[in-house]
Measured scan of single mutants.
Amino acid sequence: MQIFVKTLTGKTITSEVEPSDTIENVKAKIQDKEGIPPDQQRLIFAGKQLEDGRTLSDYNIQKESTLHLVLR
């Protein structure tokens, strides 16, 4: 499924993921596309910071959901 990751600069990254993918996994995909190390990434969805060990389905993230990427 496709999800969108919006950066603070307003850029939107499209990523191909599975509901069973972990947040860590998603951060790795963002690193592949943007070159941002996962340890600098914080992903936010519905006002919550997403934890690395959890999966997209844990957070009820569905296709075409938009996550927000904040850098630390």
Rank of each mutant, 00 (worst) to 15 (best):
G47Q: 04
P19T: 07
F45V: 02
Q2N: 11
T14W: 08
V5N: 01
K29Q: 11
Q31R: 14
L50T: 02
F45A: 02
P38S: 15
E64C: 11
K29Y: 10
P19S: 09
S15K: 05
T7H: 06
K33S: 14
L71D: 06
S15R: 07
T9Y: 14
K27F: 07
L56P: 00
Q40I: 11
G35S: 05
K29M: 14
D32E: 14
S20C: 08
L43Q: 00
P38N: 08
S20D: 11
E51D: 09
G10M: 04
S65A: 12
L8F: 14
K29R: 09
E18T: 13
A46W: 10
I23C: 02
D32A: 14
R42W: 12
T66F: 07
Q62A: 09
T12V: 14
F45I: 03
K63Y: 07
A46I: 06
T22W: 04
T66D: 03
Q41L: 12
Y59I: 02
K6T: 10
V70N: 04
T55C: 04
F4M: 06
I23H: 00
I30W: 02
E64Y: 14
P37K: 07
K48Y: 09
P38L: 14
L50Y: 01
E18I: 11
R54Y: 13
F4A: 04
Q40E: 10
P38K: 15
K6I: 14
V26E: 01
R72C: 10
Q41E: 02
E64Q: 10
Q2S: 10
P19A: 09
H68T: 13
D39W: 14
K33F: 08
K11I: 10
P38T: 15
H68G: 04
T22C: 03
N60D: 09
T7L: 15
L43K: 01
I23L: 04
V70F: 13
E51Y: 07
Y59A: 02
S57E: 11
N60H: 09
R72V: 14
T22R: 07
H68C: 11
M1I: 11
E16V: 12
I13Y: 10
K27I: 08
T14E: 08
D32K: 13
I13P: 02
E34F: 15
R54L: 11
T7R: 08
Y59T: 01
T14I: 14
P19F: 07
F4H: 09
A28H: 12
I3H: 01
K48V: 14
D58L: 03
G35Q: 05
E18N: 13
I13N: 02
K11E: 08
L67R: 00
T14Y: 09
T22L: 11
K6L: 12
I30V: 06
A28T: 10
A46E: 14
V17L: 05
L69N: 01
L71N: 07
